[in-house]
Each structure stands twice: as C-alpha cells, then as structure tokens.
Amino acid sequence: MKIAGLIVVLLCGCLLIYGTVDFPEWGDPASPASTHVSPYYIETTMEDTSVPNIVTAVLADYRGYDTMFETIVIFCAGIACIFLLRTYTHQAPETRLYRHIPTGIILRIKKGGKLPEDSTDFERVDLQWVPYDLIIKTACRVVVPFVQLFALYVIAHGHHSPGGGFQGGVILGATLILYAISHDLRTTIKRMSEKAVILLSAAGVFIYASTGALCLLFGVNYLDYSGLAAILGVDPVSARSHGILIVEIGVGVAVMAVMVSLYYNLSSVGKQDEGL
C-alpha cells in the first residue's frame, strides 16, 4: 500500500512538473497574469478607491466578496470547534487544588468538596499545577497592552501599509492567549466570557456582511461601498476607502474572537474549566 501511494504521489509530481513546461518565464512582465487584470488594478486603484495599498484594495474591495467568505470560513471553524468539543454536562473534577494566598500553601480538596471561588484568601489552581511564577506573569502583563495597541494599529492601517484585519486580529487574539498561558484559563474566561467570545465572533462577520447589505439599501450592488457615501458624509471614492476600514475592523474582531474561542475549547477539551 505504501509503495502504491508512493507511485501515485510520484506520478502526480511528474504531472505537476509537466504542466510547468508551458509556464510563462519566471517574473516575465509580459506574462498573462501581469498583463490581463493587474495593470487595471495598478493604474486605477487610487482613482477608484483612494487606497494607497493596492493589495488591500484588491483584497477588500475588488474581490471583497471572496474575503468575506474567507472570514466566514474562520467563523465556521470556530463554531465547528464549539459544536464538536464543548461539553455541557458538567462533571465535577476528581479533586481541586486551592492556594492559600498569604502563605502559599496548596490545599487538595477531595471530590464534592469546594472552597468559595470568590474567596480573597484562596485561589483555585490547575491540577497540572505549575508553580507560581511572578516573573512570567508580570512580564506578560506588561507586554499584553502594548501588543494589543500594535494590533489595533495593524488593523487600522491595513489600507495604507502591510497588514489588515486578519493579521491584526491574529495579534489581538494572541495577546489573550498569552494572558491565558501566563495566568490560567479561568482568569482569562473571567475577563472575557464564553458568551462574549461567541458574540464577538458573530459580530465581526456581521459587521462585514451587513456593511455589504447596507449598500443594497442605497440602491447599489452588494459590497459596493460607494453607496455608503451618503451616511459617511464623504465622496463615493473616499467612501470606498472608509468601507474597507469598516470591514477590516469586522475581520479583526471575528478573527480575534475565533482564535480565543478555539483556544478555550482546545486547551480544556471543551470543558472550559481547567486547561493549559
């Protein structure tokens, strides 16, 4: 079977290489890919959309509909993960660990027993107990806000410089995951509940889809941001640039929320109780 698989793979590889025989030259300026649609994008992006970054204009405006569904793919992955992993029948864990904060002593409570979660003297720690580490916790707490600020910058400047909703959203999500790793899952869920995460992931894609639908109300086609000129109070060309910013924000929110949601469910096998 392995040999048969190898032969198939080799054959496919040969076919792939055979197809490249008639490829245009590498980097050839006269190749079809750079003469058919690209010149239009390069020459008219600024007049059409007033966006200096051509890649963003193609991504979020000319082919913005594809990008919307790429965001939907991410949303879909998040929902699928919740659908498959989340367990709602709550089973109390065998034992729980509590740390007495003033002394640092760890108490092991048998099944059924429980200390008040909101007690100021005790805090719950994970079973796979990691010793309290002041340096890591403090370092992450210091880093997180600055990284988040940078993430917002990446989202907001997507149409001027490299970046955009996907990249910014990933950075934003990573900060929350960093917080969860350096502290623990429960602390993060207390800051950002499961409901909030689902709500935000739906809200993010909703911002994208409803911006497009709003254009329908102004009598233009779906995702034709120039129709938003009336409510944004700008000319139709700048409206396209603003429209791109709005959908980039939507993408950022959705990507961030889905990243966090995936982490919540994967790290705790759907229990959202204890995790890495």
């Binding site: 689902i198 889809a209 086609n221």
Partner: peptide
C-alpha cells in the same frame, strides 16, 4: 435585481443570529 446577492447573504447573516440567540 439584487436577489442574486440576497439569496446567498440572507441565510449567511441568519446563521450569525442563530448562534447568538442560541446563547
């Protein structure tokens, strides 16, 4: 004339609402 977009986008938007109201 907007129906070709609506037929795809309407169930899409409703799928967000379904998840959120399901909470």
């Amino acid at each position: 004339q907007q129906l070709p977009a609506i037929i795809v986008v309407f169930p899409l938007v409703m799928s967000f609402f379904v998840v959120v109201t399901g909470l």
